[in-house]
Design a protein around this nucleic acid. Structure first.
Lengths: 199, 199
DNA sequence: CGGTGTTGTGCGTTATAACGTACGTCTGTT
DNA sequence: AACAGACGTACGTTATAACGCACAACACCG
């Protein structure tokens, strides 16, 4: 993109790539020769990549990642931001908001791109029935019953879950929940989205 | 690597890259011209990449990902394996195994690389005290109290969690759990590991 | 103080990624 | 059937990624 300058802007993809490679090599105390031997990439090339003077091919980046026994994506995406500050949540504080007449949704932990999931607590009133549209591919739902019992529609059949039972299923197919009992059912619903995909 | 053949092996990185680009373009009904215009990469190059005849630079791959409004890593890492078969679990079945005298561990959902976390149910007997060693960087723990109350040691202080309360914290620092009450405490413990890093 | 080895960078060459354009093909139109 | 348009591929050129080698700077020893 910028042939004149060989510098890499601080926030860019190439900058993270150079920093990652440099720190990884320093971390193991490897010389360029040693790294070249481990990865199969010439040490001249490795030096240029570290200096941001050339943008490697995915093929060579793969050789580098393999040599260092690291994932390919760790060279590209920003680090998982280590983690954030400690976060306290309370179901009681969130449960007060009714999503509909016969269901309460308490967002325990809202969606976080670093985690890739959101964690909800659902309260299903007696008689609640809901069939969800399929979500995008790669979405996985976890349902765990805390109180009472309920039915989950997965794989074209209703399955009964009692207290303490759980199910995990791919949500890119028709699925649903219902509570045919006389008492409310409380469950946790953890929805995991595929990595790197916008909602 | 193999200059003679222009094919990409079925399981390789380049194969997934070509398939991803091809399906993404077909999904939107874009022609090569349209894709070239959206990404800023020549349509000839896009065609060669789709056919596996050339391995793009990370710079051009970035342009492609930006043009399609997708994450860079979605072109590289193996697909999240869509998802697995439906999996039923029961806490009662697992809870029978005592991990120690004063704590029960029930693995609700064992670690799954696609999800990046494991989900446990802990039962802390009265008087239980445990201070964990810091885990690797990028590990995040979620604790949610289901029954009774307990204390969690985070940020160099003990915090009390009552039923329905939860906390999320970075586990690469000293942390611990205790139950100073007269009745057992039950909580969920979801441990999320950084993506792409070996345990 | 001059070997001797190691580290990182510069240089010339080769392989190939990337571009712009032109061509063959297939479709739908009047 | 002939034309027009859109799509994907093949071609020739340029930019640059990648290589191997050689050199300069800094160490550790004799």
């Amino acid at each position: 993109m910028s042939p004149a300058s060989s510098m890499s802007p601080p926030g860019s993809v190439t900058h993270h790539l150079t920093a990652r490679l440099r720190s990884l090599r320093a971390e193991r105390g490897w010389s360029l020769d040693r790294a070249a031997q481990a990865t199969g990439v010439s040490k001249a090339m490795l030096g240029q990549i570290e200096r941001g003077e050339s943008s490697p091919t995915v093929a060579t980046l793969w050789k580098i990642a393999s040599g260092f026994e690291c994932s390919l994506s760790s060279f590209l995406v920003a680090p998982p931001a280590t983690t954030d500050a400690t976060l306290f949540r309370s179901t009681d504080a969130e449960r007060a908001r009714p999503a509909s007449d016969d269901m309460l949704v308490a967002p325990l932990f809202p969606f976080d791109s670093r985690m890739g999931f959101e964690w909800l607590e659902l309260t299903l009133a007696p008689g609640y029935v809901r069939e969800s549209e399929p979500h995008a591919a790669g979405v996985t739902e976890h349902v765990l019953v805390l109180q009472g019992s309920m039915d989950v529609f997965v794989d074209n059949a209703w399955q009964t879950l009692h207290t303490g039972e759980a199910v995990r299923f791919a949500a890119d197919r028709p699925h649903g929940y219902r509570n045919l009992n006389a008492t409310p059912a409380i469950c946790h619903n953890l929805i995991h989205y595929a990595a790197g995909q916008p909602a």
